[in-house]
Design a protein around this nucleic acid. Structure first.
Lengths: 246, 246
DNA sequence: GAGTGGTCTAGACCACAAC
DNA sequence: TTGTGGTCTAGACCACTCG
C-alpha cells in the first residue's frame, strides 16, 4: 500500500482518521446497531489493511466521543441510550438534597405542524416542511419538574403518535433509537432564567411568574446532523442543573 | 527495571498512569510554571526509564484534561489561563445575538471572614478558619451582567486586597495563577433559576424579583483540591449559558 | 538542518470475560 | 483455553517550527 501518497495529500488526514470516518459511516448506515458488538480490532485491522494500533487509535477517539464503548475481554460495542451510564449525560438535573431518582416521562400532546422560521433554521429544513411536535412533562418522585416542547423533522419522525410514546418504556432517546434508528450523539444547550407562564406554572405546580430554568437544546445525530430541537422549562426548587467544567 | 512487579501489584495501575502521576506532582510542586515548556517526550522517557510511547500516553491524558498543551514542532507546555483558548472554558456566558465580547471585571469589595458551615464544607476547611471573600460585577459591552461572590481559603489567598484586584489586567483565574501560583483545573457548577434580590437587581439594572440564573461553582486545583467556591447571579436578558453535551 | 510532536508498524505480553 | 481489549516497547518516518 502506498502510504506516502495518502500522507502527503494536500488536505492531510492521518490514516487513523480515515479509518475513523469509515467506522462512523458504518454506524450511520445502520450496519451495526446500538448495543451490538463490532468486529474485533484485529479483524478490523485486517479488513482495512492497517495495523491494529491504527484501528485502536480510531476506536479510541470514537470511544471518547461516546459513539463506541469498549469493554475489556468482551469487545467494542455501539453505544446505546439504553445503557444506564448514558442516562445522565443528556439530563443534567439532579436533586439538591437526596439521592438521584429515575425520571418518569408523561407525554401530553403530539401533533403535526409546518416548520416556522425558527424550527427550520434549527433543524436545517425548509420553512413549511412538516415537523412533529411533542409536549410532555418529566416527573421526579411523582413531582412534575420539567415541561418540554420537542420539535422533530417530520421526514424522519412523522410516524410518532401519542400512544407510541405512552406505551414505550424507557427514555425518549432510547425510543428514537429503537423505533426510528436515530441515535443522538451530541447536543448544544442554551440556558436562561425566565418567569413561568401560566400554562407551565400550572403543570409544574409553581406560581405564575416564578423563576424557571429555560433550557433550549439542539441535538445532533451522526455526521452532525441536527435532528431534534427542544425547549424545556425546569423547576429548580428541589433540583439543580449540574455541569462539570473540564 | 522489574516491570512485572509493578504490573501485577494488587492495585494495578499501568505504567503510563504512574508517569502521569509523577508529571502532575511536578506541576503541583510548581517546578514547571504555567506557560512554560516541559522537557521533550524523549527526554522524559529517558528520565523515567520508559519508552517514548508510554510518556506519550501519559501526556495525552494530561492534554485531554487541559493540564498540558501540545504544540507540534514547539513542545509541550503547561496550560495557562492566560491562553485565550482557555477563556471560555470557565465562563460559559455568550450573547444571544451578536458576537462574543470580552468580559470586564469590576471588583466591588474584598474582606476577611471566618468560614461558616457551608464555606467550610465546600472548601474542605474547618468552621472558623479564615476565608477571603470577594464581590464583583462582570460587564459585557459596559452592561453589568453577572454579580459574583467568591469565597477563598485564607490560608492560600489571605493576601488579596481590593487594590490588587483592581490593578490586575486579565481574568481572575490568571490572577490566582500569576500572583498565588494556584491554577484552577476543573470545576463543578450547579445552576438554578432564582428571583433577583434587591441588591443584585440594582447592580444588574433589572427589576427586583425578575428571574436570574444562579450559578454556584466549586473549583479545584491539582489533586482535586477545592480552592474556590463562588455564587454568581447572571442576567440572561441578552446572554445565555452555553453548554455542550458530549 | 535540528529538534519537537504526530503517525504507523510489528510484536510481545498482561488483564479480563466466557466457555 | 481462547479471544477480547489494554499495555509496553523499539524503531522508522512524517509534519511542523525555528534559527
Amino acid at each position: 500500500m502506498n502510504k506516502s501518497a495518502v500522507l502527503s495529500s494536500p488536505t492531510f488526514s492521518p490514516l487513523y482518521r480515515q479509518i475513523k470516518a469509515l467506522l462512523v459511516q458504518q454506524l450511520q448506515s445502520g450496519e451495526w446497531h446500538p448495543g451490538e458488538v463490532i468486529p474485533s480490532e484485529t479483524e478490523l485491522a485486517v479488513r482495512f489493511s492497517v495495523s491494529q494500533g491504527t484501528v485502536r487509535k480510531a476506536v479510541d477517539e470514537l470511544a471518547a466521543e461516546h459513539l463506541l464503548v469498549r469493554r475489556q475481554g468482551k469487545g467494542t460495542f455501539v453505544a446505546s441510550h439504553d445503557d444506564p451510564r448514558a442516562f445522565f449525560r443528556f439530563l443534567r438535573l439532579m436533586p439538591i438534597n437526596g439521592e438521584i431518582q429515575q425520571a418518569k416521562s408523561i407525554p401530553l400532546e403530539c401533533w403535526r405542524a409546518k416548520a416556522g422560521p425558527e424550527a427550520s433554521r434549527m433543524l436545517a429544513i425548509k420553512v413549511g416542511d412538516p415537523i412533529t411536535v411533542v409536549r410532555r412533562v418529566l416527573q421526579f418522585a411523582e413531582k412534575p419538574t420539567v415541561v418540554d416542547e420537542i420539535y422533530l423533522p417530520g421526514a424522519i419522525f412523522g410516524a410518532i403518535t401519542l400512544d407510541m410514546l405512552r406505551d414505550y418504556q424507557g427514555s425518549l432517546y432510547s425510543f428514537f433509537e429503537d423505533r426510528f434508528g436515530v441515535r443522538m450523539v451530541r447536543a448544544e444547550e442554551r440556558l436562561r432564567a425566565v418567569a413561568a407562564d401560566r400554562s407551565s406554572a400550572e403543570l409544574l405546580h409553581v406560581a405564575e411568574g416564578s423563576p424557571l430554568l429555560s433550557v433550549e437544546r439542539l441535538s445532533f445525530s451522526y455526521a452532525d446532523k441536527p435532528v431534534e430541537w427542544r425547549r424545556g422549562l425546569y423547576s429548580t426548587q428541589e433540583h439543580c442543573y449540574f455541569n462539570e467544567l473540564g
